[in-house]
Structure formats: structure tokens, C-alpha cells
Amino acid sequence: MTPQDTASLLVRLGRFLRDNPIFPLIILLLALIATLEFMRPGIVNERWIGNTIKFAIPLAMLAACQTLTMLTGGIDLSASVGATITAFVMATQVPIMGAPLAICIGLVPAILIGLVNGFGVAVCRVHPLIMTLGTGLIATGCLQVYQRFVIASGSVVPDGLGWLGTGRTWGAPNALLLFVPFAIFVLWLQRRTGFGRLLYALGSNETAAKISGVRSWQVYLALYALSGLIAGGAGLLYVGLIKAPSLSLVSPLLLPSVAAAVIGGTSIFGGRGGYGGTIVGALILTVLGTLLTLMQIPEGTRRILFGLIILAVTTIYVRLTNQR
């Protein structure tokens, strides 16, 4: 084999990995599970798998916000706040309104945050990162003010959400009942619909997309509103799992949600990636979390690791793309 052949083989391998990041990711996931089994023999059983999936699902839902916005080159840092608000408002409204109405009321602020994000990104051309960070701050302030009005009413997590969050049927977590249709919907949305095509188009070349007649502001507005709605759903599921609504309920999931999308092969610059990889990314992070807990890694090191993982993976993707 001549050196040129080796080079072209490398390029082809790089291209394959870039287009199908899901294969190396699954291998990585299996390797992590094997490490875990090696360190603590017998830990990997049906119960453990069920638990891992249970905790990975809210993360994967929150990561859907990041995946969809990243396809257009954006990001949604207000997702965790949206999720927290939905969970908190829902739980405090249940004693007053009853569960179904409370869930609807809870989702309103999350969608509202999304619409404001969409307006800022689409019309004012603020960078999504700064815009969503700002709306997240404002929404947190609003939540603190809201909290004092409802402090007397107490909070209740509806049984249905608890069943969905923690229950299992035949060993499989009930949350899958919500998540499987949701994942199919997102995958269908990004692959088969015009809306999904527009996301990829805007992400890979916004100018070209605009010249071809895409009304970008409509797409951004719809996208960020959808992202808010998904975040709200994730919040509902997460409060069903944790069962204790608080003002910082979902905040610890924000960084892992960005990491899950990045690890899953979605380019943070837009135009490349998909939700399939993100799901595997969320599973990898959950298993990695268990591994770090087993090794008694302090919180500081954990954050450093997450940051470095995001940086390393992005660098690798940048290198692969540049080989074109």
C-alpha cells in the first residue's frame, strides 16, 4: 500500500466516522460498561440497566433541545431553567387546579421563554448563547418571585408523573412509554420533514438558505419555542423521578445535556448531526457518571472532565471536517 492509499483510507475512515458517529459511540458505551463490570463485578444486571435508562431519559430529552438548536448553529442554555419552571409551577398549581390543568399551566412559561429566545435570535440577531443565558437569568428571577406567592399552597407531584418517572413494568422503566414516541417524533422531525431540512440548511449556510427563500425568523421562532416545550416536558418527567420540586431542580443537567449532544456527533457550528447520536451520548454520560461516583471523584474534577470532553470531542470533529 502506498502512503497515498493509507491517507485516503484515513480520510475515508474519518468521513465514515463523521457521517455515522453512532457506531464508535456504541463501542465506547460498551467499553464503559465493561470497565464498570470489571471494577465492580456483578453490578451490571437487569436492575442496573433499568436504573441507568431511567436517569438517562430526562437527560436525553433535555439534550434534544440542544441537538435541535445546535443543528442551526445555536444552543439553548435556558433549557434547564425552562424545565425547572415547568416542574415547579406544575407542582405548586396541582393543589389548586388539579393535575391536568396544572401541567398545561406549567408548560406556558417554558414556551414563553422559547419564544423570547427565538425573537432575540431571529429578529435582533443576538448570539443564541448570550440570548438564552440572559432569558435564563430573567426566568430564574421570576421563579424566585413566584415562589413567594405560592409558598403557602405547598407542592404535590401528581401520581401519574411519579408512575412515569420511577415505576417499571416487566423490568422496563415506564418513562420509555413517553420517551420512545418522543424520540421517534424528533427523529422523524429532523429527517423526514421540511422543518428538519430547514434546520440543517440554516445551520450549514445561513446566507445560502436565505437566498433560496427560507424565512429564517419563522424557523428560529418555531425552533426555540419547540425547544422550550421539550424542556418543559423533560422537567415534568424529571420531577416525577426526583419527586421534590425545587428552584434548582434541573440545573445540574444543563452541562451534561450540552455534552451529550456534542458527544453524540452534533456539530455545535450547525448543519451536522442528529438525535440518534445524542441518545447514545446521554447513555454514555450516565454510565460515566456512575463510574466517576464509584471511583469517588470529587465534584470539581467531574466538571473539569465534562469541560475537557466537550473540548476534545469538538476538536476531533473540527479536524475530521477539515480533512475534506
Binding site: H127, L129, L255, V258, I268, F269, E299, G300, T301, R302, R303, I304, L305, F306, G307, L308, I310, L311, T314, T315, V318, N322
Partner: peptide, 19 residues
């Protein structure tokens, strides 16, 4: 790394926080 500044410093935000 030739990764855009916004991504690098986002990752470093978490790294320095951890430090």
C-alpha cells in the same frame, strides 16, 4: 484547536469552575 472561541470558552467555563 481551531475550535471557535465561543465553544472553547464554554468548555473552559466548566473547567475553571471545577478548578
Amino acid at each position: 484547536t481551531r475550535v471557535p472561541d465561543i465553544v472553547v470558552t464554554l468548555a473552559m467555563l466548566f473547567v475553571w469552575e471545577g478548578v
